[in-house]
Computed example of a mutant assay.
Amino acid sequence: MPTRRTILGGFASIPFLAAAGALFAARANPYYAGPVSDHFDGSRFFDPHGAPPRSLGDLLRWQFGSDPRSRWPASWPLESVDVPPPRVEGDALRLAYVGHASWLMQTRGLNILFDPVWSERFSPFTFIGPKRVNPPGIAFESLPKIDLVLVSHGHYDHLDLATLSRLAATHDPRVVAPLGQDSIMKAHDPAIRVEAHDWGDRVEIGNGMAVHLAPSRHWTARGLFDRNKALWAAFIVETPAGHVYHIGDTGYGDGHHFREAGRRFGGFRLAILPIGAYEPRWFMSDQHMNPDEAVQVMLDCGATRALAHHWGTVQLTNEPIEAPREGLAAALAARGLPADRFRAIRPGEAWDVPPATA
């Protein structure tokens, strides 16, 4: 069973982080320099409709307090392993679940990865930190030629530098990320072909498609001393056959961001939404939504269908491994919605998404 310190990722026991803290304190922002905006104060990014991340004291209270923590299995084997086709043409839309927040999306001849993590641990270290309970749902060697990678923010379960370097060496994809995340990647490996964009930016990706960066209710960091020095974002993939809304991490709050996305884009063919890492609620609710809130996001943004992620791969919080999927089923039933409208497939499974009009 992983210890609380292990789940925390080992940060509390690493002495050199104090020196790193002094370095970050001496620099206004090591990742990004740009004008003040409605979500950047000249040093840190913030969400005008969100809440700041919890304090270190709250983190320690959760990690070493009395909140009950379930025991995940050391291994939860995959039921299948996906072998994707080389390309998916036209308006067909295929989604394959790699695990946690990692997806392969194929449509209109483009292969797009969201938040790719193929490492065994979701941690800055290879010997300690949260460890996956199943392998990636697609073997790295089985990936088709990757054209584009979208990285939502800098947390280790979303921005995996080892995987990005491996992709750069084997596929040389274009990488799109929020402001400041490019500095983190380039410092690790200049071969990563990354470009950084702000909320509200539209990025042409070819084949009649574009990517928009949109706000989510979250935050970002790589350590204890660089909170919100870079930006985080949700992605909206614009296609002629309907848009796809991918949120790597978010709390619900008052639902502003999701209603605004639905208003701006006129609804979505598919929303890819997190349903896990939500307990205890006193600590997690501002930045991670639970399954009931995820169903509400699907309705708020006007998504015809949804896929669930952020569950069943690595234990980051207190809930049991199956709880997110069970909670999702209960939330759909309570609203009288069909179970296949919001699916929680396992890593290694894929779904050919029906047309938005079906």
Rank of each mutant, 00 (worst) to 15 (best):
T3K: 03
S13Y: 01
S13M: 06
A18S: 12
A19S: 13
A19E: 09
G21F: 00
A25P: 05
A33Y: 05
D41W: 08
S43N: 13
D47C: 04
G50Y: 04
P52T: 04
L60P: 00
R61L: 12
R61Q: 11
F64D: 08
D67G: 07
P68E: 03
L78A: 11
S80I: 11
V81R: 15
V81G: 00
V83N: 09
E89Q: 13
A96S: 15
G99C: 08
H100T: 03
S102K: 04
Q106D: 06
T107I: 10
T107A: 11
F114S: 10
D115H: 09
S119W: 00
F127S: 05
I128D: 03
R132Y: 06
N134H: 15
P135S: 11
P136Q: 03
E141F: 11
L143N: 04
D147G: 05
G154Q: 10
G154I: 03
D160N: 10
D160A: 09
L161A: 12
L167P: 10
A169P: 05
T170N: 12
H171E: 04
D172Q: 13
P173T: 07
V175F: 08
A177E: 03
Q181M: 14
D182L: 07
I184L: 14
K186G: 09
A191M: 07
R193M: 04
V194R: 02
E195M: 09
G200D: 03
G200F: 00
D201S: 15
E204D: 14
L213M: 05
A221F: 06
R222E: 14
W232R: 06
V237P: 01
E238F: 01
T239A: 14
H246W: 01
H257Q: 05
L270F: 03
A271C: 10
I272C: 08
A277D: 15
A277K: 11
Y278M: 02
Y278K: 02
D286S: 13
D292L: 02
V295C: 05
G302S: 04
G302E: 01
H309A: 07
T317W: 13
N318G: 00
E319D: 04
E322G: 00
A323Y: 15
E326F: 10
L328A: 08
R335S: 11
A344G: 10
I345K: 07
D352Y: 00
V353S: 09
P354A: 15
